[in-house]
Write a protein that binds this DNA or RNA. Structure first.
Lengths: 167, 167
DNA sequence: CTCAATTTAATTGTATACGATTAATTTTCT
DNA sequence: AGAAAATTAATCGTATACAATTAAATTGAG
């Protein structure tokens, strides 16, 4: 328990000691101190900036990251895709049906294990990657992102995710 | 334009020069290099961890951050709340109606300017703050978050948001 | 003073997102 | 082999989220 300037005990359940700072509980409830809120706003705002860039390709942000995953590894199950994208079948099934209707992927029930549906890029889906090369650049430009800041933030996030995921 | 080891020009539209690294466009399209995807996954996973903590109070994450905003500044318009939460009236109106039905807030059409609807905490809404004090601690605990990491990530995010918002 | 422009919240339509459940299939246990 | 358990994708219900539009009120220009 800590003792403040005038020598009185602080009530333990009203203070946290983090490094050198004492942060009281009112501070902890301020929006500016919410890590999750900052993450949430940041991701939403960037996704908004993706919108006009992805729109010419007929893609939403979720469709885009699904294709990113498939360009890395193709002919995978819905389950595998969900693990990589942190999405479940409730989200993926309608999304994949749309990408199929757009001609970017095929959904093929596996014959080896009929529980599995394999997701496979079509030629059009594979070819789309060529057009996608400009997307990261266009985003960095339109969102005014500094590459160095983005890189350090990204590595901080990866480290953080290691901590919190599956705990 | 850069020249590589064997003296040939690299195709400018296939390379980026960032600091000392040359990152080719295939790398740029990998999920692990997507800052937005990391933000998006991180915020979703943390919001998932909030769920069981907020559920006893009858709150969703959006309801929670709305109350956080109101505990800081009360009797505000929907517009003001939207500016602070980065949400528009399409999201807020139904959310605020629900918080009203739960007895946490009142929605009062302003008499000074009848376009405005003022959002005002009820006594129950103000009293809920006492129960909310434990939420940040509970989350940090259940999500296994290191306070020092969270603090540095948060400051990195605030700095980043300065860059990208309203550009 | 009056009409056009602006502002505000609500509404509508579309797209996510996830928990829970379901149906079909496969695996495991005995 | 055969029943129980586990796995997979799909479905259902609920909650976000946002762009675009609408309706009402206020402001501003002439």
């Amino acid at each position: 328990m800590s003792i403040d300037n005038d020598g009185k005990f602080k009530k333990a359940n009203f203070t946290h000691i983090i490094e050198d700072d004492i942060i009281n509980e009112d501070e902890m409830l301020k929006l500016d101190n919410q890590l999750c809120f900052a993450l949430y706003v940041c991701s939403k705002e960037i996704i908004r900036k993706y919108k006009p860039i992805l729109e010419p390709l007929g893609l939403t942000y979720t469709g885009y990251i699904t294709l990113l995953a498939l360009w890395e590894r193709d002919e995978v199950t819905v389950k595998d895709l969900g693990n990589r994208l942190y999405l479940d079948s409730g989200t993926l099934t309608p999304l994949l049906k749309k990408l199929e209707s757009q001609g970017y992927i095929e959904r093929i029930r596996s014959t080896l294990d009929e529980r599995n549906v394999l997701i496979k890029l079509t030629t059009a889906g594979r070819d789309l990657k060529t057009k996608a090369y400009r997307i990261p650049r266009d985003l960095i430009c339109s969102a005014n992102i500094e590459a160095t800041d983005a890189k350090s933030l990204l590595s901080g996030l990866h480290q953080f995710m290691e901590q919190i995921i599956d705990k």
